[in-house]
Amino acid sequence: MINKNSELARAFWETGKLPCRILDFHAHMDEHPQIYFPFSSADEMVKDMDKNGVEHLFFCGHLALDDPLYGEQYNVTAVKKHPDRLRAYHILHSRHLDAERAITDVENNPDIYVGFKILGDYNEFPINDPIHFPCYEYLNRTKKLLLLHTWGGSAYDDFGNVADIAERFPDITIICGHSFFGNHKKGIEETKKYQNVYYELTAIPIVRGYLEDIVNGAGSERVLFGTDLPWFSTLHGVGMVLSADISDEDRLNIFYRNGEKIYSRLGLWGK
């Protein structure tokens, strides 16, 4: 039954669903050349959310991530089709950056976008390069979200790059996707003093012990649930949180309480 020491785990095992909401702060959609997905369209993602009790999903689709010219429009289409369930991160392609246009897109479409996403490693471009600063100034002013792919040992998006952004732009809500995977302890140690930095769980389930480190290092109040859906099943992440050596209070913080606080900050869905 996953974890006989957890009431949440017991409830999940009985019904196949968590007895609480789930807010997923890191997802994708649409096809990807490196993998077969059993499903990946916006409609299928929402169906999967219904099945697993995920209330809202924050995503940036693969087409936007990988096509710097034409991909962004598919994020818009998906949110327009499911405005009650989805919000998008506007991608910032560092090597094709039109900061003014990206800011205008986000500013003019508050019901589509919650902020920006950058993949420093994939772009092979430091996330704290000044080329991004106009976008960060906008996020700092509006308190919107910045989802970063963060990876231990990277020259582009490790803790030093994130700390630099957090120091310069203290009001951005920074979500460290993958929580500096592979160097998570040091990453948290070096960035937790910035109160608007959060740690997200994508990829973390594949190494037992990382989640406990993150919760012990940063406090569960700074951890957001994320899956990389459809790469990882939502339940794969849920199962990790249920079987980790943390408390049910920590689990509730991770599944939805911390996310709710961000909702109030941004006024999402009228909250």
Binding site: I2, G239, M240, V241, S243
Partner: peptide, 8 residues
Amino acid sequence: RYPGSVLA
């Protein structure tokens, strides 16, 4: 790996 992931 976490036992709960595949179990869930």
